[in-house]
Design a protein around this nucleic acid. Structure first.
Lengths: 192, 192
DNA sequence: CCATTATGATTGAACGTTCATTCAGTCAAT
DNA sequence: ATTGACTGAATGAACGTTCAATCATAATGG
């Protein structure tokens, strides 16, 4: 732990893992501190209070998602390809970071994700907004509110990853090709 | 409040509203009791502990959904019609019972919905399972694990209702016809 | 038909625990 | 010597849960 950023990050990652494992109930500040290797009081150097910490996880996570997806987007491709890349990369990211997927899944519909939080400028929302807007400008997808469009697409990605996670070992054969879901959604949003 | 069932129900409904309004954090037993018009101790006549109460809400809600949907299903129709009825009725139900929608949205991805809870016999899951199975038996939809199919369909219904709820007043015009989402999903699951 | 007893739901103050938060003192770096 | 991060025991509020006391109702007996 060389510097301040590392310490803040290790607090966030400790909290992230705890929320993923035990939900919002199961991440007392004392535990977050212990797993992060700092004292409880130290957390209050970096965050005003616990709610601020939870929102801090969200910002951290949103930033990670944005850079992962944005780096892998190639806007010289036609939008259809960009869409399927988006889907695949997002899925890949979630599967490589199950704690982030678990946190996001719980956070989005929780009261922590308040109107106030949603109304702050948000890198990830802006990027996704721009992404789908460019699909419309190109005439590849139907004119639609890009905010709603991204919610819809992301909901299905999150849900698909959750199903894969839960059913990986439980059901031997599902006969459903979950990857087809991206095609299903694409068929629904592309221009007729 | 004539009898015991009414009292249990009023406790559940009080808790349901509180979870919807404030999340799982914001529903202390003391408040649940106050809003239900009973003493805190009384709750423990009907539920072992708070977790049992939360699961009790889930069972209550699942029962309501099942009866609403099942009553309105007409299995003499061909499956495509039954599917769109299912979608419309579910949406209708959620919009008439926003607290149930809000609770479900939070409960499903929460640690309260543990493996143990999921593995209990569940009227609603069984009904949905049977519903989609009959669509397959009829040859109307592709062979698919009906459990996964219902998760996927229900996720999109829940999400659509959430979008309608959140964006009703915020955005004047969305240009997206959210009702088309049912057609989109149908196109994806029906036999080619 | 009333008086007495038994039953079991209901109450809400009290209890013990847990938690977020604070802060006086310590430590490390410059 | 100064600064500012860091510590972790202390604090007090909030919470889930308990239980002795109360109450309403039903059952019993004269």
């Amino acid at each position: 732990m060389e510097n301040l950023l590392d310490k803040k990050q290790s607090i966030i990652e400790s909290a992230l893992e705890l929320v993923h494992a035990n939900g919002f109930h199961g991440c007392p500040v004392s535990q977050v501190a212990k797993n992060a290797g700092v004292a409880a009081g130290t957390i209050y150097t970096y965050f005003e209070n616990k709610e601020d910490l939870i929102v801090g996880i969200y910002d951290y996570v949103a930033e990670k998602i944005t850079s992962y997806i944005a780096e892998r987007d190639d806007d010289s491709l036609e939008f259809e390809n960009r869409f399927f890349n988006y889907w695949r990369n997002f899925t890949e990211f979630y599967e490589q970071h199950p704690a982030i997927h678990g946190f996001y899944d719980q956070f989005l519909n929780s009261p922590f994700n308040s109107e106030k939080v949603q109304n702050r400028p948000n890198m990830w929302h802006e990027w996704a907004h721009m992404f789908f807007q460019s699909g419309m400008d190109e005439g590849a997808i139907r004119a639609t509110n890009p905010v709603i469009l991204s919610i819809l697409v992301n909901t299905n990605i999150t849900s698909t990853v959750r199903i894969k996670k839960n059913f990986k070992t439980k059901l031997a054969k599902t006969n459903v090709n979950l990857d087809e879901i991206s095609q299903l959604i694409w068929a629904g949003i592309k221009t007729a």
